[in-house]
Design a binder for these strands. Structure first.
Length: 108
DNA sequence: AAGGTGACTGTCA
DNA sequence: CTGACAGCCACCT
């Protein structure tokens, strides 16, 4: 497994309940600012195997970035279940919920 | 090997 | 806030 992949998984596992990170932010912390799409790919392939909090990952606009209607709704409910307010159009207040400090550590 | 694709992003309107 | 566009980059056909 690539280092980048491991980092991304490691980082996502550390997202605190009630807070979110954007794809680009994760990519940046993992060392590849332009690899947001890869973060998405990792989410696709590893989220259920590694039990990652995929619903805490949204796009830079602070919006749920999924097309599938059912999964979209699932994410919205999961977020609201953690106390995060999501508008009807899927928007989230990044200023209130996005992690601003990088808390990444090598241990895990 | 070559081209298409996507749970993205920043910019402009 | 929404929508359109052009970059980006690894994976799939």
């Amino acid at each position: 497994m690539r280092p980048f992949t491991e980092l991304v998984i490691r980082i996502m596992k550390q997202i605190p309940k009630g807070q979110v990170m954007t794809y680009g932010q994760i990519a940046k912390v993992a060392g590849s600012p332009r690899a947001s799409r890869q973060v998405v790919r990792i989410l696709h392939s590893m989220s259920n195997k590694h039990k990652l909090p995929w619903h805490r990952v949204i796009n830079a606009k602070g919006q749920i970035a999924i097309k599938d209607k059912e999964v979209w709704m699932e994410q919205k409910l999961l977020l609201e279940n953690e106390g995060i307010k999501v508008s009807d159009t899927g928007y989230i207040d990044l200023k209130a919920y996005q992690i601003d400090e990088i808390f990444y550590n090598e241990e895990v």
